[in-house]
């Protein structure tokens, strides 16, 4: 390798890494895992109540190295994309009617924000809950838009540590895409995902 190529290959590249997916797929848990691994910082709070992330949350200057690729990542954790928001879904978790309504209003705004931000993302992680049926329309809508905008992306079946998960079904459903099954909580599969991020980031201009 010539010294010019060597320098180029070791230059740190700035990448906006966006976390997309349906609600409660584990986007924030994954963003926190990456944030802790590479910057000792979390990105956001995790909750079992849907739509915990209602605003875009960022963690900048995450120095990431994998497969000899140096990246300066900005982790961008998006609100979960959904086609409906019902305050009753939050009351089930003990929120008051007023709190539920406020959360629902913020959630609808968050979904719009996540959609609008898509064009600013360099590489996307589409996080899919591996314990659920993968044929959710929202996943296909997100993937279709990433393809239309020529954005590189990885489908990340999450929660593979849970007994009712089926990563193979997700891999089968998305067999012509990059797929990296993981447990964001336990760290299973995370290094394969890091290598895949590095590989796709190298192709970003």
């Amino acid at each position: 390798m010539s010294w010019k190529l060597w320098l180029k290959s070791n230059k740190t590249k700035k990448i906006n890494l966006g976390f997309y997916g349906e609600v409660n797929a584990g986007k924030t848990t994954l963003a926190n895992k990456i944030g802790m691994d590479w910057a000792s910082q979390e990105v956001g709070e995790v909750s079992e109540i849907p739509h915990e992330t209602r605003e875009i949350q960022k963690l900048e200057k995450v120095k990431f190295v994998a497969e000899g690729t140096n990246l300066d990542l900005t982790l961008i954790d998006m609100p979960g994309v959904a086609t409906s928001v019902n305050p009753k879904d939050f009351i089930k978790f003990g929120l008051s009617p007023a709190e539920a309504l406020q959360r629902a209003k913020e959630a609808t705004r968050g979904i719009v924000e996540a959609i609008k931000y898509l064009e600013n993302v360099d590489v996307a992680l589409v996080v899919v809950d591996a314990t659920k049926h993968p044929f959710d329309q929202v996943n296909f809508t997100i993937i279709g838009n990433l393809e239309a905008q020529n954005k590189p992306f990885i489908i990340v079946p999450n929660k593979v540590d849970l007994p009712d998960s089926n990563a193979e079904l997700v891999k089968d459903a998305f067999s012509n895409y990059h797929v990296a099954p993981i447990s964001a909580l336990q760290g299973e599969g995370i290094y394969d995902l890091y290598n895949m991020i590095a590989s796709l980031a190298r192709k970003v201009r």
Binding site: V81, P87, I111, V112, I115, L118, T141, G144, N145
Partner: peptide
């Protein structure tokens, strides 16, 4: 619908939800 139309439909839906 194209993926862009689907995303546009979701975006517009969010603006019309009245709870």
């Amino acid at each position: 619908l194209t993926p862009e139309e689907e995303m546009g439909l979701i975006e517009k839906t969010m603006k019309h939800i009245n709870f």
